[in-house]
Each structure stands twice: as structure tokens, then as C-alpha cells.
């Protein structure tokens, strides 16, 4: 029997209302164990109010190197930012 267990990525919500954030990973053979290991490893100091674990193999990532081309389409669309627009002198609350 192989001794390699599954790797699970761990995401923690630090406070109610905030987004879950990636903090690292754990080894575990099933999902309950993954949650318990994540709790023991990443929340020893009240770091979280909720934990997600997901098997690492299910994470799909863009290439980090030469990743520029992938994000190109958004570069030339400055009009998506509010600073692109000319506002009349003195206009407020906009």
C-alpha cells in the first residue's frame, strides 16, 4: 500500500463576512481528516471562523510565468476604470 496521502488546499475565512483566503495545504486521506488537520495546523490562534478544504488535484491554475498574454485582453480597456472619465469642474458625489 502506498503511503502517499492526498494533498488538500486549505482556505480560511478569518471573520464572518470576509472571503476565504488560501493559507496552505495538508495531507489527509479523507475530507473529515482534511478539515481536522487544517484546523489543527492553521487555526491554533483563532485565525478562522470557517475552513474550506479542496483536493489539490481539482485546482486549475493559469501559468504563472509568461502569464501576461493570458491577461492581455483587459490591458487596453482603460474605460473600465472610473479614472478614465472627464468630470465637469465642481461635480460632486460622483
Amino acid at each position: 500500500m502506498s503511503e502517499n496521502t492526498n494533498v488538500w488546499e486549505v482556505f480560511i475565512q478569518s471573520k464572518n463576512g470576509l472571503a476565504h483566503k488560501h493559507v496552505g495545504n495538508v495531507h489527509a486521506s479523507d475530507k473529515e481528516m482534511a478539515l481536522q488537520n487544517a484546523r489543527d495546523l492553521y487555526t491554533r490562534r483563532n485565525e478562522g471562523s470557517c475552513i474550506w478544504v479542496v483536493k489539490s488535484e481539482y485546482i486549475v491554475s493559469s501559468e504563472s510565468e509568461d502569464g501576461e498574454a493570458f491577461f492581455d485582453p483587459s490591458n487596453d480597456k482603460m474605460y473600465r476604470h472610473p479614472t478614465f472619465y472627464n468630470m465637469p469642474e465642481g461635480a460632486k458625489h460622483i
Binding site: M1, E3, T5, N6, S29, D30
Partner: peptide
């Protein structure tokens, strides 16, 4: 323990 965990999963 590792083997039991594996068998359980």
C-alpha cells in the same frame, strides 16, 4: 494508522 485511514477512505 496511515493504513487504516487509507482503507477507510
Amino acid at each position: 494508522v496511515r493504513e487504516a485511514a487509507k482503507a477507510y477512505s
